[in-house]
Design a protein around this nucleic acid. Structure first.
Length: 428
RNA sequence: GCGGAAUUGGUGAAGUGGUUAACACACCGGUUUGUGGAUCCGGCAUGCGUGGGUUCGAUCCCCACAUUCCGCCCCA
C-alpha cells in the first residue's frame, strides 16, 4: 500500500523535534514563572462550541472548519483555535466558583485544525501556544497579557516584530460602529471590490484591511472606531497604552486592525513579523485580545477574560532565521566502542552505568568493525569515545578519547563509576 | 474556494520520443576486523509523483488526479 500523509499535515522528524521541544520548554518555563498553569482540552468539540463563539459568518466557521458527523450522529469539529474549548472547559468545570483563585490563568500547547489551502506557515494541522486569563476586567490584566506575549517572544529570540493594537469596545460600540461603516460604504458599494461588496453585508470591519486599490481610496475617510468608543473603553485603552510605554513595549495604533473572530471586545492585538525571506508581506505570528462575553455565551456567569495565541509553525519559521542556536543538533556525551571477544557485553554495562550517572551514552548494537564504530560516534556527534579492548580489559584497563582533539587517556574499570571526575581530568 | 508554477535516487540535480537515466554530495563495502573526520577503489534509480491515452516505442507529447510552493480570500 502506498501511503502519504494527508494534505496540509507535516511529520516533525527527530532532526527538528528537538527544536520544538526547546521552544515549548522555554514557553512552559516562562508561563510557570507567571503562575499560568497548563490546561489540556479535547482536540474536538461539538460543532456549536466553535460556531457560536467565533461567529457563523466568520471565515473560520463558514469555510475552514474541519467538521464531521460521528457514528452517533453528533456534529463534531476539530478545534480551529484554542480559546473556545478552554472557555467551554472553564464553564463546564465551574472554574468560576468561589474556591478557585481569580484570575484563573492557564496556558495550552495544542494542535489545531483549519481546512485551508496550505502554504508556507499555513497548514491544515498546526500548533498554537496560547494563554487565557479569566475573571478580571482590569486594564492590568490586559497589560499582563500583552507583557507576557512580548516577553515570551523576546525570550524565544524573536527580534523584528511590530505590535499592533486596537480597541473594539463593548457590544454597543461595535454595533454602532458596524452601522456607521455600513452607512459609509453602502452609497459607494458599486465602486468597491467584489470581495468588499460581500464583506459589506457579512463583516464590514474586514473592508478596513482590504488590499484592493478600489477599496483603499475610501479608507482614509472611513469612520474610526476610536470615535465610537465609550468613555470606559477609551479610558481603559489609555491606561493600557500608557503602561506599555512605561514598560518600554513599543506598539503601533492600528485603526484597521480587526480580528477574524467575533468574540472579541475591548483591546485586540497582533504581533507581526516582516521578513522578505519568509513572506511577501508582514505576517501575524501572535494574536489575541479581550473577550468579555464568551463565558456568558456558554451559559456561565458574566466573566471578563483576555488571552493570546501564537502560531507555533510560524514562530518556528521566524526563529530558524533569527535564533539559529535553537536549531543546532545536539550530540551525545559518550559512544562506547569495543573490540575483541567478550567485550560486547561490557559495552552494554558501561553504557548503562553512564546513563545512570546522567550522561547520554550509546554503543554499537550492530558490532561493526572498530573503524565503523568510530564513524558512527562521529555521526552522532559524540563528545567522548570509550574503547573497550579485549587485551586491556583482562587487566582492567580501557581508554577514553576526546573526539574534538584526539586526546586519549587511560582509565581503570573503576573510573567508569565516576565519569565526571574523568571528564574533569581530561579538561585539565 | 479562485488563479499560477513545480514534481527525476537519501539529497542537489543533468537529460533524451528509441539499446546500460550524466554529474556531485551523502551512504554502504574495501584500502593489515584494534581507534574517527583524509586519499584511493568499488557499490548505490529495472526507475523519472499516480492513473490513463497517443505511439512500433515515452521519463520526455496529451488528459485527469495527487502533493508541494506562490498569489488571492482569510488567518496562526
Amino acid at each position: 500500500m502506498k501511503v502519504q500523509r494527508p494534505k496540509g499535515t507535516v511529520d516533525i522528524l527527530p532532526g527538528e523535534s528537538g527544536s520544538w521541544e526547546k521552544v515549548e520548554s522555554i514557553a512552559r518555563n516562562f508561563f510557570k514563572r507567571a503562575n499560568y498553569r497548563e490546561i489540556r482540552t479535547p482536540s474536538f468539540e461539538n460543532y456549536e462550541v466553535f460556531s457560536r463563539s467565533s461567529g457563523e459568518t466568520s471565515d473560520v466557521v463558514s469555510k475552514e472548519m474541519y467538521d464531521f458527523n460521528d457514528k452517533g450522529g453528533r456534529h463534531i469539529a476539530l478545534r480551529p483555535e484554542g480559546t473556545a474549548g478552554v472557555v467551554r472547559a472553564y464553564v463546564e468545570n465551574k472554574l468560576y466558583g468561589p474556591d478557585v483563585v481569580k484570575p484563573f490563568s492557564v496556558y495550552y500547547i495544542d494542535n489545531t485544525f483549519r481546512y485551508e489551502r496550505p502554504q508556507a506557515g499555513r497548514q491544515r494541522e498546526f500548533h498554537q501556544i496560547g494563554v487565557e486569563s479569566f475573571g478580571s476586567d482590569s486594564p492590568l490584566a490586559d497589560v499582563e497579557t500583552l507583557m507576557m506575549a512580548h516577553d515570551l517572544l523576546a525570550e524565544l529570540g524573536v527580534k523584528n516584530y511590530e505590535l499592533h493594537i486596537n480597541s473594539l469596545g463593548n457590544a454597543q460600540v461595535r454595533e454602532a460602529y458596524h452601522d456607521a461603516l455600513v452607512n459609509y460604504f453602502t452609497p459607494v458599494k458599486d465602486q468597491l471590490s467584489e470581495d468588499s461588496q460581500r464583506r459589506l453585508s457579512q463583516n464590514p470591519l474586514r473592508i478596513l484591511d482590504s488590499k484592493d486599490e478600489r477599496d483603499k481610496k475610501f479608507l482614509p475617510n472611513a469612520p474610526k472606531i476610536v470615535d465610537y468608543l465609550d468613555d470606559e473603553s477609551r479610558k481603559s485603552f489609555k491606561t493600557i497604552t500608557d503602561m506599555l510605554e512605561q514598560l518600554g513595549i513599543n506598539y503601533v495604533m492600528d485603526d484597521d486592525l480587526v480580528r477574524g473572530l467575533d468574540y472579541y471586545t475591548g483591546i485586540i492585538f497582533e504581533f507581526m513579523v516582516e521578513d522578505k525571506n519568509l513572506w511577501e508581506s508582514a505576517t501575524t505570528i501572535l494574536g489575541g485580545g479581550r473577550y468579555n462575553h464568551l463565558v456568558e455565551e456558554f451559559d456561565g456567569p458574566e466573566t471578563p477574560a483576555v488571552g493570546f495565541g501564537i502560531g507555533e509553525e510560524r514562530l518556528m519559521l521566524v526563529l530558524k532565521e533569527q535564533n539559529p542556536d535553537l536549531f543546532q543538533e545536539e550530540g551525545i556525551d559518550f559512544f562506547i566502542t569495543n573490540i575483541g571477544a567478550g567485550t560486547e557485553f561490557k559495552a552494554v554495562e558501561v553504557a548503562r552505568s553512564l546513563r545512570e550517572q546522567g550522561f547520554s551514552a550509546q554503543y554499537d548494537v550492530d558490532q561493526k568493525k572498530l573503524k565503523q564504530q568510530f564513524r558512527k560516534a562521529d555521526r552522532v556527534h559524540a563528545t567522548f569515545v570509550i574503547t573497550l579492548g579485549a587485551k586491556e580489559l583482562e587487566n582492567g584497563v580501557l581508554n577514553i578519547k576526546r573526539l574534538s582533539d584526539g586526546k586519549i587517556i587511560d582509565l581503570s574499570l573503576e573510573d567508569i563509576n565516576n565519569m565526571q571526575d574523568v571528564i574533569n581530568k581530561l579538561e585539565d
